[in-house]
Nucleic acid binder design. Structure first.
Length: 376
DNA sequence: CGTTATGATTTCGC
DNA sequence: GCGAAATCATAACG
């Protein structure tokens, strides 16, 4: 059974009645010779026939010195291996990767699903208010593309994750298996696993990289408002103009007013601010050019706000009453010179408010002041 | 295709 | 940070 277990069956080697004292020294010699034996057997194992080697191997495996030898061999291997490759033992958290992660998270690609909520919100906004069809369309388009990217990203990520764990367990089993026949320390297995993980995570980094790129491209295609400027919807401009001309004396909407306007026009508050900034400056720059629409909106608000206009002739249609309006508008359009402001409708005292500092419209279209006529 | 209209951005003063 | 003014860049128009 144990052909090479000389330590165990001492009964054969030693006389039964040997005194204990002798046995101690004898034992030391014995062990040394045993180890020599074992090594000899290990060295010659390759020369033997397969069957013989197999049985020897098994015997060696069961030998009581085996764990010690194993650990020594592991140690030696560790030492020689250490010099070879312990260069990148600890990797710092790659800043590049962190950046990618953050961006994906911020873009909603990596984070939890939120497509449903956003979609619901959008549809609600569309149905409730008159969201401009362009922007909503564009937005949903962007959203669907983004969720497409996210899906791909997630499935790929999952695939990698699964492959990685599969491969890891496979390698671990293999190494554990082999650790019975060759010096593979648990630490080495650990390191192997770490290497595998590193490889896989580098693949994942690539995935993240390309996902980021895709999102960036999508973003620049859809959300770069400056490059692809869209005009506001007719209705939105209507609302904004109504507010502007009905507050001509002080066209500076408060925060709340901006919010309300933004909601009504389905645009952002900063867009409202932009619009008013542009409007103010452009109106002031050339009042004449805006006279027509000023009249238009003034009339509109007048009609909309209250019917109790004391003038009996204009309250209903644009028919009869509009003659003066259209006539004057024509005048303004056709003949730019027409002295600064000529409000045919001096409705709300807005005409010459304080905000434009009554400075003369810089010569652009206001001239003609030399004409002394035009009194009424 | 040139011009105008218009939304956004930049610059600057407060 | 807000607004005026200048400027940019594109959409809309003839």
């Amino acid at each position: 059974m144990h052909p090479l277990n000389p330590v165990h069956p001492p009964s054969r080697h030693r006389p039964e009645g040997d005194p204990a004292g002798l046995e101690g020294t004898e034992n030391g010699h014995d062990s040394r010779r045993d180890i020599g034996d074992i090594l000899q057997q290990i060295m010659t194992i390759t020369d033997q026939s397969l069957d013989e080697a197999q049985s020897k191997k098994h015997a060696l495996n069961c030998h009581q010195m085996k764990p010690a030898l194993f650990s020594v061999l592991c140690e030696i291997k560790e030492k020689t291996g250490l010099s070879m490759r312990n260069a990148q033992e600890e990797e710092p958290p790659d800043p590049q990767l962190v950046r990618l992660d953050n961006m994906l998270l911020a873009e909603g690609v990596a984070g939890p699903e939120k497509g449903g909520g956003a979609a619901a919100a959008v549809s609600a906004a569309t149905s409730s208010g008159g969201m401009s069809p362009d922007s909503s369309l564009e937005h949903s388009d962007y959203k669907s593309k983004l969720s497409q990217i996210r899906n791909i990203y997630h499935t790929e990520m999952e695939k990698y994750e699964q492959a990685c764990s599969e491969f890891t367990t496979h390698v671990m089993n293999l190494l554990r298996e082999q650790s019975r026949t060759r010096p593979v320390s648990p630490r080495e297995i650990e390191r192997m696993v770490a290497i595998i993980h590193r490889k896989f995570s580098s693949i994942q980094t690539q995935l993240k990289q390309s996902t980021c790129e895709a999102v960036m491209i999508l973003r620049s295609r859809f959300l770069d408002a400056r490059r692809k400027r869209r005009n506001f919807s007719k209705q939105a401009t209507e609302v904004l103009n109504e507010y502007f001309y009905s507050h001509l004396s002080n066209p500076y909407p408060s925060e709340e007013a901006k919010e309300e306007l933004a909601k009504q026009c389905s645009i952002t508050m900063s867009q409202v601010s932009n619009w008013f900034g542009n409007k103010r400056i452009r109106y002031k720059k050339n009042i004449g050019k805006f006279q027509e629409e000023a009249n238009l909106y003034a009339m509109k608000t007048a009609l909309g706000a209250t019917q109790s206009e004391e003038s009996p002739h204009t309250p209903n249609s644009t028919g009869s009453g509009s003659f003066s309006l259209s006539g004057s508008a024509d005048c303004f359009l056709g003949v730019p010179p027409m002295d600064g402001e000529q409000p045919p409708y001096h409705m709300g005292a807005q005409t010459n408010g304080s905000w434009q500092e009554q400075n003369t419209p810089p010569s652009a279209a206001s001239p003609g002041s030399d004409h002394s006529d035009n009194s009424d």
